[in-house]
């Protein structure tokens, strides 16, 4: 990924900042530029999400995505955050046999991967069971 493309999303990726619509009060993540519920009537403001959530579904990835080969096998999940939004994230520090749908997790800041050519290290959020 080119550096500016990653850098642009740093506030969202590093701080779990999404958006909250002042019109319908819905919390949106990943960030959006138009509220899908109110469209032109929406009033989006940055919103820092609470970091707790629960596992809606999970998979153990054995054949890794490009750039993630050194991490396989890894746990990938869809997490529903306390504020409502859902996101896709890896679950870290967990034996894959122990994870269950409904498990409570918190989002923690971790290294995601590094680009071999430019040496940039990417950070973002992973989930950890609590």
């Amino acid at each position: 990924m080119a550096v500016p493309r990653f850098w642009r999303e740093i506030p969202n990726r590093y701080n779990l900042v999404g958006a909250r619509c002042g019109n319908c009060n819905k919390v949106l993540f990943p960030p959006r530029y138009i509220c899908p519920y109110c469209r032109r009537m929406g009033k989006l403001e940055p919103y820092r999400l609470k970091r707790r959530g629960k596992v809606l579904s999970y998979t153990v990835v054995h054949i890794a995505a490009n750039g993630f080969e050194d991490q396989a096998p890894y746990l990938l999940a869809i997490i529903e955050l306390e504020d409502g939004p859902r996101l896709t994230a890896q679950i870290t520090d967990c034996n894959p046999d122990e994870i269950k749908i409904g498990d409570e997790v918190e989002m923690i800041f971790r290294r995601m991967g590094e680009e071999s050519q430019d040496g940039v290290i990417y950070y973002g959020f992973k989930a950890r069971r609590i």
Binding site: M1, S57, Y58, T59, V61, I63, A64, A65, F68, Q71, Y74, L76, A77, I78, T88, A89, Q90, M112, G113, Y122, G124, K126
Partner: peptide
């Protein structure tokens, strides 16, 4: 999705 390590088989596995 892809940035955090998702693949197509991964999404359908979810």
């Amino acid at each position: 999705e892809v940035f955090v390590g998702a693949t197509f088989p991964g999404l359908y596995a979810l």
